[in-house]
Simulated scan of single mutants.
Amino acid sequence: MKYNFQIKLMAVRHYLDGRDGYKLTARQYQVPASSLRAWTAAYRLHGQAALLAKTSITYPAHFRAHVADVVLREQLSMRTAAARFNISDYKTVGRWVQEATKATAPAKKERKHMAQKAQKPAKQPEEMTPAELLEEVRYLRAERAYHEKLDALMKAKAEQKKKSTPSGH
């Protein structure tokens, strides 16, 4: 459900004035507590402009990639990233991160090929041709990037679960 600017602003200011916690403020203004949290985070970073209705924005590919990179590198929750970059829906950030990790993960056929290759007795680097060395470097880089992204995603998911547990506000 969409809420107008005035409702968002009044609810955020009410919460920030310290009168009530998230749950009571949300109940009073008849908005979801999760929305109030998101509006408050965005308001703290971007002021009133963050509460204005955003018409359908198409974000450029380089911006989406940058946001996904920051999320993975800094292990941000999707909500925190949405607030930081003033993106109205945290699920949008989640889709961008998912797209970025799919783009860096090797394709299924490549994975199968790489797994078979890893089982072969490895040649010593001195015995390898330049082409074989390049292939191994590419494989190792892809494998490292995949594991780093996977670790970052798992940490972000754990962080998101930790943040979504009721905190009494």
Results as ranks from 00 to 15, higher is better:
87 I>A: 03
17 D>V: 04
134 L>I: 14
164 S>P: 01
36 L>H: 02
3 Y>S: 01
3 Y>V: 03
140 L>I: 15
90 Y>T: 02
22 Y>P: 02
11 A>H: 06
69 D>R: 08
68 A>P: 12
163 K>I: 10
134 L>W: 14
30 Q>K: 06
126 E>V: 15
54 K>W: 04
115 A>I: 14
67 V>S: 04
67 V>D: 04
125 P>R: 04
48 Q>K: 07
14 H>A: 03
62 H>P: 05
164 S>Y: 07
71 V>W: 06
125 P>A: 10
79 R>D: 03
125 P>N: 07
79 R>T: 07
53 A>G: 00
61 A>I: 14
44 R>Q: 08
150 L>P: 04
93 V>A: 00
62 H>E: 11
58 T>P: 04
61 A>N: 11
59 Y>Q: 08
134 L>G: 14
109 K>W: 15
94 G>H: 05
91 K>C: 01
71 V>G: 00
28 Q>K: 11
7 I>G: 01
116 Q>Y: 09
130 P>Y: 10
112 K>V: 15
78 M>H: 08
62 H>D: 12
83 A>L: 07
100 A>T: 09
91 K>L: 00
127 E>Q: 10
45 L>A: 12
42 A>C: 09
85 F>Q: 03
109 K>I: 15
89 D>M: 08
128 M>H: 07
113 H>C: 14
10 M>G: 01
60 P>R: 00
102 K>T: 11
106 P>Y: 08
54 K>C: 04
107 A>E: 14
138 R>K: 15
138 R>Y: 05
12 V>P: 01
49 A>W: 07
136 E>D: 12
83 A>S: 06
47 G>T: 08
79 R>E: 05
65 A>D: 11
145 A>L: 14
